[in-house]
């Protein structure tokens, strides 16, 4: 850095004491956001006050590896299914009148399901598919199942996947709707003027424009499912099939000494996965905005 800009910055700052105005904000986020992040980063490599790789080694224990693998599979599957169904829904909604009730209703409903569901979603799911619940009895009347529900709803690759879709599809609508709204009708008209069919329009115009937004939204959905805790915790009462539940387990179990630091290592593992995916998202988002500037 040359001296000239630095001098200018200092002159702007020093006489007024303007920096004092932002001290409360930075103090607050340091205590409640930056230090906690550092605690995880550092704590993952420390045990009993000594630097160690022991916590990281614990990540290779079968239970943790399985949890990570199942978390990744669950997140990936629900992200793909959620992105496809939610993307279709977003397109359908984008063809409706802009200020209409349908759009307001659906975006509000999706906002609720995507962000505030948590425990209530697990309850909703149990009330639908649990023992003696609405659909379980309905299906039993139709001759499917016995009416007593079953354990499938508690399994990570069956019930949890279904219940995760209850917040993945709505989230897709919310993040993808602005992108499909950015498709200009003129583009379709131009395609038609040049003799292209609807298929040509989607294949050669809309799909290439939407692709970065779509992949970006898909990655966002992945991290969303990957970091979700509440719904799974409320639904799964035995074992910890997912990484967030494993981390939560280190809070409640007092059996193993030093679990807390293993928890930090697992938290770090989670942060790394989320950070990598979010970085990819940021790059794609920048690319996506090239065409969809409004």
């Amino acid at each position: 850095m040359t001296d000239a800009p630095r001098g200018r910055v200092l002159r702007e700052i020093r006489p007024s004491g303007a920096l004092l105005g932002v001290v409360p904000f930075f103090a607050y986020v340091t205590v409640f956001l930056l230090i906690p992040t550092l605690v995880v980063l550092v704590g993952a490599f420390v045990s009993d006050g000594r630097v160690t790789m022991g916590n990281i080694d614990a990540l290779w224990e079968p239970a943790v590896v399985t949890a990570l693998w199942q978390s990744v599979v669950l997140s990936a599957v629900t992200a793909v299914v959620g992105a496809v169904v939610g993307g279709l829904l977003a397109y359908a909604v984008s063809t409706a009148a802009p200020g209409g009730v349908l759009r307001r209703f659906l975006t509000s409903l999706c906002g609720v399901l995507a962000q505030f569901g948590g425990v209530a979603l697990a309850f909703a799911f149990l009330a639908t598919f649990g023992a003696g619940a609405l659909l379980t009895t309905l299906f039993a009347d139709l001759g499917i199942g016995s009416g007593s529900g079953g354990t499938w709803i508690y399994e990570w690759n069956k019930g949890l996947m279904l219940v995760y879709l209850y917040f993945q599809i709505p989230l897709m609508l919310i993040v993808f709707l602005p992108a499909v709204e950015g498709l200009k009708p003129q583009w379709r008209e131009a395609t038609e003027t040049l003799g292209g069919s609807t298929f040509t329009y989607w294949r050669r115009v809309a799909a290439p424009i939407l692709m970065p937004s779509f992949i970006g939204a898909l990655l966002l959905l992945f991290t969303n499912a990957f970091s979700a805790y509440a719904t799974a915790a409320a639904l799964v009462s035995q074992g910890s099939p997912l990484l967030p539940l494993q981390i939560g387990g280190t809070f409640t179990s007092e059996v193993v000494i030093g679990q807390a630091n293993v928890g930090k290592a697992m938290a770090l593992e989670m942060m790394v996965v989320v950070a990598v995916v979010m970085a990819a998202y940021a790059i794609l988002d920048r690319r996506a905005s090239r065409w969809l500037v409004r």
């Binding site: 956001l33 906690p36 605690v39 991290t223 967030p244 981390i247 938290a267 989670m270 942060m271």
Partner: peptide, 17 residues
Amino acid sequence: LPLTVPAIVLVVGLTPI
């Protein structure tokens, strides 16, 4: 930044705080 720090990770870091 909190968008990229899952709540469960924040809990781990907030314990000493």
